[in-house]
Amino acid sequence: MILTVTLNPTLDKFYWVDHLPLSLERAEEEILIRARKSTASAGGKGINVSIFLACMGVETVAMGFLAGHTGQIILRDLLEKGVTANFVWIEGENRTNVTIIEKGREYHPVKIHEEGPRIPSHAQEIFLRKYRRMLKRAEYVVLAGAIPPGVPDTVYRELTQEAKEAGVKVVLHAGRRPLWEAVKVGPYFVKPDVREELMVGDMPVRTEGEIIAAGKRAVEYGCQACLISHHVTGDVLITPEGIWEYEAKVPLTKFKNLVGADDALVGGVLYRLARGDKLTEAVRFGMAAAVASAEVEPKMCLAPAAIEHEMRAVEVQFKEGL
């Protein structure tokens, strides 16, 4: 079983518009934007990974905090998609994240992310008890996404330590300080989220050289693999055995929705690792899942045949040994 933790779940709302006016010609003018299509679905990085895995037939349990009417919608969507849900209920309302995608500018979406409800310390204690219980039945645990108000930045570090003590491999898919604090205790696989800041810990990751240096640091801390995005269609994998470059030969103009592609990547890697594939091949499948997801309007491509098809577009090159 693959456990995923999403401490700050979201209802992801997407609007597709023909034109997105971002400035007003007249100060008194209001902007009315008519969406030609809209969708809403359960989201948050860990939840997206669970949805991907469940659709691939992998047993997965999603954990985190749910609240209010939005929480009920998130739960219902997860259950309908075959994900097992084990959440802590709190007062308030889960966040809603809005993405507006303009025709012709699909790879530059406009996003509005809410902060999410404050998590009381008592609810965090209940979560920890549930987490420890679920670790006994898990092979991998995915710690992913933003940290909600009230939860310390060191939470992924603590959850990683708990998982390692229970003999469960940790996949970390987050950004900024919560990521780096956890990297220091050696999770199995790290996929830094560098959307908001091209930094991993205190190291910039703008160039390939900087990416490799950051990945090597993660490996020195005990990580078995660190996969960092170089550009939209290129990632670098750093492991104790060496460095691989992945490149998806796909034109950006084919992309329709980039939100969720990174989560499909992590889901794809886990799907293949759980099947017993080699890490380098699993990452290749993950890249194909990300590309296939970016090429469809829904958040993720959940059709195995379409992902297999994209495998042909993903090139892997061994760069150097460590």
Partner: peptide
Amino acid sequence: MRRDLTSVE
């Protein structure tokens, strides 16, 4: 079944 594990101890 609903795969909802909401429960108490």
